[in-house]
Simulated scan of single mutants.
Amino acid sequence: MITLMNETIKQLALIGPTASGKTSLSIEIAQKMDACILSLDSLSIYKEIDIVSAKPSREERAGILHYGMDYLSPDEHFDVTTFVKLYQEVYRQALSENKNLVIVGGTSFYLKMLIEGISDLPAISETTKEKTALMLQELNDAYQFLYDMDPSYMQRIAKNDRYRIEKALHIYFETGMTPSEYFHVNPPTSVINGTLPIYQIDIDREMLRKRIALRTQLMLKEGLIDEICMLEKKYTREPNCMKSIGIKETLDYLDGVYNKQLLEEKITTNTARLAKRQTTFNNSQFEGVIKGNVEELQKIIVQ
């Protein structure tokens, strides 16, 4: 399992649409492999977002160490670099403890970025931070300043995306290069250590729809509405995570847009659409993937 001399561990990734059975299968795999789990999920990463993220309970985790859950507060920003740092930290931790690693999640974009890698950013001086802060006082002007220099890069960034505009300004003021020039000179390199076989849960669409509907019902019974009320009161509706499926529909319900039955239907429908997008992404973005239903993958990986 572990080759300390080469500093490698056994690892694999498990992907699939939401509600397809990834969580229970990943725990079973981790038990068999003597592994820890790194979650790649854009909601489970937040503390206090438990029901709507379908985060496994402490009991369901069966003593397996889970990373990438309860990592940030809902009002903290994160992007792909967060998961890159997480992977690197977890890999080192697993190596030091003679553990293997199972990467699992529905947000496969982050897995793709781990495989393809991201470019190292320059160290940012205080002078650059001061220049950037001054520019950001007028966000529209800052965006236009960057767009005039580098339209191909900036057209992919929203005019109100303060975080990414700030990063682009940092690059320009620190290096004198536009973001496009900088990333051309500093291409991305893969973050993954060693090999990473990818397994994908293949599930019938109608069966998945039923599983999504059942999970939505359970969420409501477990206190979904109370959880969203707590999150809104504590963090407002401003954080990006408050616009996620399950949260935005519940906020509409609280505003009187939906009754409870329609709330359940809306969450189910929007989750099913998300699952379809996830499957399309998975089928188009990864090569050499081993596909099968839960039982088939269980036999391939666990037995």
Rank of each mutant, 00 (worst) to 15 (best):
L43K: 14
L43T: 11
Y46K: 09
K47N: 12
E48I: 01
I49H: 04
I49Y: 02
D50P: 07
D50I: 15
I51R: 06
S53C: 11
A54L: 12
P56A: 07
S57P: 12
S57R: 04
R58T: 14
R58N: 13
E60D: 08
E60V: 06
R61G: 07
R61W: 03
R61L: 07
I64C: 01
H66F: 15
Y67T: 05
Y67G: 02
M69W: 00
D70H: 09
Y71N: 00
Y71E: 10
S73W: 06
S73D: 04
P74M: 01
P74T: 03
D75F: 04
H77S: 07
F78T: 03
V80C: 06
V80Q: 02
T81N: 09
F83V: 02
V84P: 01
L86D: 00
Y87Q: 00
V90R: 00
V90P: 04
L95D: 01
E97Y: 03
N98W: 06
N98A: 12
K99D: 00
L101Q: 02
V102P: 00
G106A: 10
T107P: 12
F109S: 07
M113Q: 13
M113K: 15
I115Y: 01
S119N: 03
I124Q: 05
K129V: 11
K131P: 13
T132N: 03
A133C: 06
A133V: 01
Q137A: 13
Q137M: 13
A142D: 08
Y143T: 13
Q144G: 09
Q144S: 15
Q144V: 14
M149Q: 14
S152N: 14
S152A: 11
Y153G: 10
M154V: 10
R156I: 05
R156N: 15
I157F: 08
D161Q: 08
I165S: 08
A168S: 15
L169S: 00
L169H: 02
H170C: 11
I171S: 04
I171V: 13
Y172P: 03
G176E: 07
P179C: 14
